[in-house]
Amino acid sequence: MRAFTQITGLVAPIDRANIDTDAIIPKQFLKSIRRSGFGPYLFDEWRYLDRGEPDMDCSTRPLNEHFILNQPEYQGAEILLTRENFGCGSSREHAPWALEDFGFRAIIAPSFADIFYNNCFKNGLLPIALPAAEVDSLFQELVPGYRLTIDLAAQTITTPAGRSIRFDVDETRKYRLLNGLDDIALSLQHADKIREYEAKRAKRAPWLFTN
């Protein structure tokens, strides 16, 4: 996994609440058995005027020019600013895969759906929950070319005017993301504890160890 330390990136705003994972990456693209290549289909139904299908060449598809990510001033955006409950709906990790593949490194919103939030950290993507009023003020300040600096170690966002906003993140998640660490390898360091747990549990609930 790619580590996340500090970035200064262009911010793209999507002013909409409850953006679900079906909107982030529609189901037809979930038929892929690969982990990459979802970026061109990110927000497919909002981004293009035609119906998207897997393996389509997106460079020739008609674009919805009203959609924010299609506008010239937001090309190369790395930070997504949006509203509450972002990523609600299905558990598809294809949603963070698509966001990351598109080029996003961080998402700022008042709240995130739990499964989506968790999935982001497995993919080098940093979801930042800020109070709704703070998100509102970022929306107010935002003009084309607006860039924010995000420092994960310091847990701060710095605005172009130099204002610093602190954000919360779990220590374990922060450590793993800062170092780009593989969760499985870390968990397997506790292999003895897992076996010990299994041995105790097999006595109390033997039916979980017989079939």
Binding site: N118, K122, I184, S187, I194
Partner: peptide, 18 residues
């Protein structure tokens, strides 16, 4: 509860989740 694909792999490999 539902999990993402990275966690599916984690459960396959460790029978545990963080």
């Amino acid at each position: 509860f539902g999990i993402g694909t990275s966690e599916v792999e984690h459960v396959l490999a460790t029978q545990c989740l963080v």
